[in-house]
């Protein structure tokens, strides 16, 4: 898709975006399939030994070191106020870049990349609270329904919640 950019210009790009398949990174958690834009994911790693942070909220079970960087682990299940993801030695974490933030998102299982045409995406159901407030769309592929998360907003919210009002400087 990025390859086609130079030849198709802006309108072409827009048209392509409308017609072509988009890649989403799909996870399993909370008993369903959730996905977000694939380009946000840099790599998938096995979650190493966690270091728990004192006074951290439940959705941040700890931090872990990856390639010399200390990355916070985000449990979306806990964030939206539902059950926690069990952390095991085999638990995989998707390392995502959301603006300035680089976090490791944990889930029950990583399904991988799924390709869904953008025009088939539907708006999320009008629900308030829980995971619904972070949904940007609902898509379908051969395996079934996929809820598309607005990951940057989610990460922002998490950051906002993790840092108390006094810690605005961070």
């Amino acid at each position: 898709m990025p390859e086609s950019k130079p030849t198709t210009e802006r309108e072409g790009k827009a048209a392509a975006e409308e017609s072509a398949d988009a890649w989403f990174f799909c996870l399993r958690m909370l008993g369903g399939r959730y996905a977000f834009e694939a380009p946000l994911v840099t790599e998938v790693v096995r979650l190493g030994p966690l270091t728990r942070l004192p006074a951290a909220p439940a959705f941040l079970p700890g931090v872990f070191t990856h390639r010399g960087e200390v990355l916070p682990v985000l449990d979306i299940g806990q964030l939206v106020g539902r059950t926690a993801v069990p952390i095991r030695a085999s638990t995989r974490a998707a390392i995502v870049h959301c603006g300035p933030w680089k976090v490791a998102v944990v889930s029950d299982a990583v399904e991988g990349l799924v390709s869904i045409p953008r025009r088939t995406l539907e708006p999320p159901p009008a629900e308030a609270g829980g995971v619904a407030e972070f949904l940007s769309a609902v898509g379908r592929d051969r395996a079934g329904t996929v809820a598309i998360l607005d990951l940057p907003r989610l990460v922002e919210t998490a950051r906002a919640r993790a840092v108390p009002a006094g810690g605005g400087a961070a």
Binding site: P2, P39, V45, G112
Partner: peptide, 20 residues
């Protein structure tokens, strides 16, 4: 499992590379 992980990351890399 490691192969799976590697393949997953490879797919990601492939996706990043776009059409190529």
């Amino acid at each position: 499992d490691r192969s799976d992980l590697l393949a997953l990351n490879a797919a990601l890399e492939g996706a990043k590379a776009g059409e190529a």
